[in-house]
Amino acid sequence: MLEARIEQASVLKRVIEAIKDLVPDCNFDCNDTGIALQAMDNSHVALVAMLLRADGFSPYRCDRNIALGINLNSLTKVLRCAQNEDMITLKADDAPDSLNLVFENTENERISEYDIKLMDIDQEHLGIPDTEYSASITLPTAEFQRICRDLSQLSESVAIEATKEGVKFSCSGDIGNGSVTLRTHQNVDKPELSTKVDLTEPVNLTFSLKYLVNFCKASSLSQTVTLSLSNEVPLLVEYKMDNGYVRFYLAPKIDE
């Protein structure tokens, strides 16, 4: 059986909020290493991979592989019943038809308990190859969110060009064009505000802004985000957490 207690409901709330619009129904794969999720969106353009490592829970028990097929809108409704500072305990049997959630608030001795029905979800498991990317760009999450939001007003697509000097996001649309360049720099006092580019060769790829704007719903998970690019392979957008990550993969646009 699964029993996993997380100290702060807000962590789970933010993770689910980050992915629910992209993958409304998905399997949470639980085993002794933690709770993982991997799902493609309906159009097979984007993939979400999430991991909450066992050491992020206390206690964490899961002695065999359990797949929890969950509708994330249903889970969101139940998680709204938890306050951010509540502890959440997740429980499920070995062959579960429901997931039990207990929210505890130690301050006011309030305990609430919910069960949500699980679904059978037939999901392909995909092997994600370890990739040596040509460019990895780490930048402040809020900066990336702002760039995506700003450029999405002009165009459906953004070209991301990484050179050793920095990264340039540019777009063109019916009303005109625009670009934002971030030059590589290090902020000594606030390292999370730095922009870093690790580059083996220059890269220039085009992506759908609609998806990137969607990925930015994960912005509350981390102060920085890493974009990893190689020519002709999917973009990796990674939000690292203390005990896990949310990663998004996005297929590039191809010139006709």
């Binding site: 999917p234 297929a251 191809i254 010139d255």
Partner: peptide, 14 residues
């Protein structure tokens, strides 16, 4: 304009 690619083919089904 550019055409949206898909992820099929990039990742192997296990």
């Amino acid at each position: 304009s550019a055409q949206q690619g898909r992820l099929d083919g990039f990742f192997k089904v296990l």
